[in-house]
Design a protein around this nucleic acid. Sequence first.
DNA 1: TTGTAAGCGTTATCAA
DNA 2: TTGATAACGCTTACAA
Lengths: 324, 324
Amino acid sequence: MVAALAGVSRATVSRVVNGSTSVAPELVHSVEQAVRTLNYVPNRAARTLASRRTYTITLLVPESTSKVFADPFFATVVEGVAKYLNSTDYMLNMVTSSEANPGKTQRYLMGGNVDGVLVVSHHSGDHSWEHLSDALPIVFAGRPLLNAADSYYVEVDNEEGALAAVERLISTGRQNIATIAGPQDMPPGVDRLAGWRGGLHQAGLSDALVEYGDFTVASGAAAMQRLLGRGKPLDGVFAANDQMAAGAHSVILKHGLRIPEDIALVGFDDDQFATGVEPALTTVHHPIAELGEKMARMLVELIEGRAAERVCRLPTSLVVRESA
Amino acid sequence: MVAALAGVSRATVSRVVNGSTSVAPELVHSVEQAVRTLNYVPNRAARTLASRRTYTITLLVPESTSKVFADPFFATVVEGVAKYLNSTDYMLNMVTSSEANPGKTQRYLMGGNVDGVLVVSHHSGDHSWEHLSDALPIVFAGRPLLNAADSYYVEVDNEEGALAAVERLISTGRQNIATIAGPQDMPPGVDRLAGWRGGLHQAGLSDALVEYGDFTVASGAAAMQRLLGRGKPLDGVFAANDQMAAGAHSVILKHGLRIPEDIALVGFDDDQFATGVEPALTTVHHPIAELGEKMARMLVELIEGRAAERVCRLPTSLVVRESA
DNA sequence: TTGTAAGCGTTATCAA
DNA sequence: TTGATAACGCTTACAA
């Protein structure tokens, strides 16, 4: 360690580099100067080997690589994660749990090569990684289907968001409010439906108008079609995400009905689908980048043994545009 | 190293693990067995420290993190990279060159923490990383603006693709073929325009009908508007990407013209915009995932000192749908 | 507060 | 072909 040539022992250099408090200010100064002139960069591998800390966090990408990457949700989460990690010493590394090599990932993660894991398997019930959590700190994006009670995770407050959507609909005078719900085997699907129900009950309105979709545009269109086909009075719709709302949107217009005059429409997520239609969607903002940031922050706290809440629920906000 | 407890020296274990040829078959066998029963996983840090090889490849993400991640091109490249790397011992790590911490990335990369770098700054002329290449193997996605001559990169054959597009237009009887070209400060913009020109010249047709866009839907629409405004005969359009083609598409229909009967339209990229319009676009397929795969393969070859072509140009193929 | 010295788990050199 | 043994560059008791 060449920096020692600037006056002190390697131990002291190490202390300075790692910000130990117990070092004489003058020594700190001269070491820092030496570091600068020698352009010294600590060797990560050596540091890891000695300290048994890797300063590496793995982003675990589930099986269906192609689908996940195409998903803007994923991209935005990663963006948030990267942003936070940039302010720390941690490096981010991605591992896709290859179908081909099931054990490889496992071994890598358990092999002490990583300080913690971030799991972004947003849909796909595959939470085969939960068992890792007793070997390694793990934070999930979204509430896991199983073992939610002992998992660390960050999610948006889906129920609150849906409630706000319904309240908007009610406050603009709607009385017959339907929902296009998401799959009931996914927490967001369940929670958004519950929020819708809650809002209606609060106002003493009926919750009979429910149709289900799978979060795709096509399924939203089909659900809207069924809703209209019921022949019941209908003047407001809450779709559990913007994609389904977009599908409903086109069906409503195709039926010669006006948005929002005849049917008001509120979506959820505030993504490109919300602004990609005309009139643009009033929707619930899903703070995805913040979710990623929070996940990373939580994981780092966990790793460093600082207090960390087991679950973090991010608040939503209603974005009012033209559709409701 | 506990595995040594199964008969031999640590040196031999190392040889077996690393597949050295000069080891007695019986020893190989017993070591492998020991590895299995002890569930031994080599320690990356120790290996790196001793061998000065990190088995880590960095994916360098340019400044504007949010834009890049939103770009499906980026996501797909990463997918390809990850896929190839999964078949190797290399790990992928992402570093976003934070505006906040300009030197940090630099030091990390130069600090011997990485075996090679993949740069995916698809647009954004910022190739401030080219100087790294004399310290570290680097492979770029797309031909770099500067120093293309001494850079390693993978690109799609833009000129060939554009040529095929024009040939399609000609073969379906079009005589007055325009182009909506991309920015001329980006290699794909330049090359696709050149391909269009080449096709027309080959056929003895005029190359007068050129308008420029910036690869966005809106710019494509505006360019189409200008093309139509010229009042010249026009029965075919080649747009330099599908987004601009989609913009042109809506303008054509809005003018009461039919696609492809009145104006045939060919795009480039074969992305979601090609299938998102009705009639769907005939377009040039851009093999993005393959590009990522090839980049990774090239980098690994470079790192391991095996022969590697300086530039790899991926072939395109025409996807015939309804618009031409 | 500072220095000494013992690892950390591999690979690599050199004899045997 | 195999085995000692010395690095690799850092952290961290433990002493001073």
